[in-house]
Amino acid sequence: MDSQTTIRNEDSVLRLKIRSYAKEQRQIFRTNATDALRFGLGQIKREISELENLSAKDVCGLAARIKRRKHATSEDMYRLSHAFLQGNENINTFSGIQGAIQVLVKELSGTNMQRQIDAAECFCNLSLGDGHVSEKITALAGSYLVTYLDGKEERLKRSCLWTLANMLATCEKAAKTLLQMQIVPKLWKLYTAPTDDLNRFQDDAGICLYLIATHAACTVSAVDRRYIVEHLHEKLPTDPGSDYYMYIIYQLNIVCSEEDLSVQQAESLVNFFVGNLKTDWDSYAGGSMRIYYGVRVMANLLAKGDPKLLGCLAEPENFVNALNRLFALQDSNLRYDLMRLLKNFLSLNIVDSNLLLEQLKVYA
């Protein structure tokens, strides 16, 4: 399996994870007909079977109702959320009704916190549709979804993150628009939040950054890249979502000849890479992304030609130990990148090449 296949597989897994987030709510409602915590409605009297069989006709009726009232109740949004989970027909029906999404935007941007949450969760399920739906949501509600990433309400923030992830995964135009709304710095702050953060948004923010790096890397501004450079040190290998870190750094071309890195910034990358080698990264799915792209980032760092940027890897013994562990994997997908890493290290002329090569354990 080559690295591009690995990334396609990772992308598919993440997109499945994004969609399963909303669908998991069905299990909650099957086992508990009371949803007071989430919607503030008290006892839900309707049968679960009714909620799981809402048709396009039902969606039209709900859309007409909220348009007529210019307001959507929590119950309206509860029913719409379930309708959107049942397939694209319901999603396309609602998104095609002029003025319907605007009513949800009104609730999302209002002052009632509970209805803000309800609207955000409604948008999360609506964003499971195709690209044209994501484009419309971005145009009408994108600024609010991004702004609420700075908020303190956990459910609202999490629903916004998953809605944004859905849109980033399905619509390139939506991604470009969102990138103009200062989404990258906001996501990076959440991604690098302290590990004692009780709300744990690091992994969700990491998925969004991963999707940006995959689908819209060329659109990320120089200002956003510089922000990431200045905050590289805030992410640790043991943090939630750290599997995506090196991939994000590589895809966004953070370590390139044009981008200046301080000794501290470069050292944080080296420490992250070395920290990965000290963990059981080869025992789970995310480990391959850490290693493949960690090696590429290190090769780019060495290509800058400045030994002061190498941190602990400037010591030949440390470099050899790291390289030998990677060679021991006997991974054909790593071979070219490891040889490039070795070549760039030898080009620094900080050690006798023959002595170093004698210590390497390259497996045929």
Score class of each variant (00 low, 15 high):
residue 7 I to M: 14
residue 14 L to W: 12
residue 16 L to W: 12
residue 27 Q to I: 15
residue 27 Q to L: 15
residue 28 I to D: 12
residue 30 R to Y: 11
residue 31 T to P: 00
residue 38 R to H: 13
residue 45 K to N: 09
residue 48 I to V: 06
residue 50 E to A: 09
residue 51 L to C: 08
residue 58 D to T: 04
residue 68 R to V: 06
residue 74 S to R: 07
residue 88 N to L: 12
residue 89 E to N: 13
residue 98 Q to M: 10
residue 105 V to S: 04
residue 113 M to W: 04
residue 127 S to K: 00
residue 133 V to P: 00
residue 141 A to M: 05
residue 141 A to N: 03
residue 143 S to M: 03
residue 147 T to P: 01
residue 150 D to H: 09
residue 151 G to P: 01
residue 152 K to W: 06
residue 163 T to V: 07
residue 167 M to I: 08
residue 168 L to I: 07
residue 171 C to W: 02
residue 175 A to P: 01
residue 182 Q to C: 13
residue 186 K to S: 05
residue 190 L to D: 02
residue 191 Y to L: 10
residue 191 Y to R: 04
residue 196 D to Q: 09
residue 199 N to H: 13
residue 201 F to H: 09
residue 202 Q to G: 05
residue 206 G to Y: 08
residue 210 Y to V: 09
residue 211 L to M: 15
residue 213 A to Y: 10
residue 213 A to W: 12
residue 226 R to Y: 11
residue 233 H to G: 10
residue 236 L to M: 13
residue 239 D to Q: 12
residue 247 Y to I: 06
residue 258 E to V: 14
residue 268 S to C: 14
residue 274 V to I: 12
residue 282 D to E: 13
residue 285 A to H: 14
residue 289 M to R: 15
residue 297 V to Q: 02
residue 299 A to T: 08
residue 301 L to P: 00
residue 303 A to N: 14
residue 311 G to S: 05
residue 313 L to N: 00
residue 315 E to Y: 04
residue 318 N to W: 08
residue 319 F to T: 02
residue 323 L to K: 00
residue 329 L to V: 11
residue 351 V to E: 07
residue 353 S to T: 13
residue 353 S to V: 08
residue 362 V to L: 11
residue 364 A to R: 07
residue 364 A to S: 12
residue 364 A to C: 10
